[in-house]
Simulated assay, not measured.
Amino acid sequence: MVELESVAAVADNGVIGDNGELPWPSIPKDKQQYRDRIANHPVILGRTTFESMLDDLPGTAQIVLSRSVDSVEVDTAHVAADADEAVAIAESLGADTASVIGGGAIYELFQPHVDRMALSRVHGEYEGDTTYPHWDEADWELVEATEYDRFTLEEWVRVDRDAGE
């Protein structure tokens, strides 16, 4: 079974995006740790997020969730109609881990299923139209928190393994 890890940057007020962009000024250190974390396995993302990353696609493969397209013109990309198909594709690629990288609807869809979360807690509150889904901290354990300039990287592990089944 592939392990699902949600990877996101989240402002203090839960905002993750504004009109398809990050709502805060670029944080190079966060961008680098994010890219390093997702570099060696497939990523699961929505079509809009995928299209916004075409110039520099992340991960070893991209599993694009879409209800409107059946295929994309990228050799490393696969299209999935739903979460189960996305996980099946990740498993067919031989992946131990797949990173869920957004956008908002994709995070919401996968939240009950993810095993881990790597959340960059961006210091400050920002205006935006997309938020990270709510989750019950009782189901999770914070296993590591690393302070950086302008953000804290939090590593969460689901403690109630049955909650995602």
Rank of each mutant, 00 (worst) to 15 (best):
W24C: 02
W24R: 02
W24H: 09
I27S: 05
I27L: 12
P28D: 09
P28G: 06
P28H: 10
P28Y: 09
K29D: 15
D30P: 06
D30E: 07
K31N: 13
Q32Y: 12
Q33V: 15
Y34R: 10
Y34A: 05
D36C: 10
R37W: 11
R37C: 11
I38T: 13
A39E: 06
N40W: 13
P42E: 06
V43K: 11
T48Q: 10
T48G: 02
T49D: 00
F50C: 05
E51D: 08
S52W: 12
S52Y: 09
M53A: 07
M53S: 06
L54C: 08
L54Q: 03
L54P: 00
L54H: 01
L54K: 00
L54T: 08
D56L: 14
D56E: 13
D56H: 09
G59F: 09
T60V: 10
A61T: 02
Q62C: 15
I63Y: 02
I63S: 05
V64E: 03
V64D: 01
L65E: 02
R67Q: 12
S68M: 07
V69H: 06
V69A: 04
S71A: 15
V72F: 10
E73G: 07
V74N: 07
D75W: 09
T76L: 11
T76H: 05
T76C: 10
A77I: 14
A77Q: 03
A77Y: 01
H78A: 12
V79K: 09
A80M: 04
A80W: 02
A80N: 06
A81K: 09
A81R: 08
A83W: 01
A83M: 04
E85T: 12
E85W: 02
A86C: 01
V87W: 00
V87Y: 01
A88L: 06
A88T: 14
I89E: 00
S92M: 07
L93V: 13
G94V: 06
D96P: 09
D96M: 10
T97V: 14
T97W: 11
A98H: 11
A98V: 06
A98F: 01
V100W: 10
V100K: 09
I101R: 04
G102T: 08
G102P: 03
G103I: 03
A105F: 02
I106A: 11
I106K: 00
L109C: 08
Q111T: 12
Q111K: 07
P112A: 05
H113I: 14
H113S: 13
R116A: 15
M117R: 03
A118V: 15
S120C: 05
S120M: 09
S120G: 09
R121W: 10
V122G: 02
V122D: 00
V122T: 03
H123T: 13
H123P: 00
H123L: 11
G124D: 01
E125W: 04
Y126G: 12
G128V: 11
G128A: 06
G128H: 03
G128D: 05
T130G: 11
T130E: 14
T131I: 13
T131V: 15
T131A: 14
Y132K: 12
Y132L: 00
H134R: 13
H134E: 15
D136P: 03
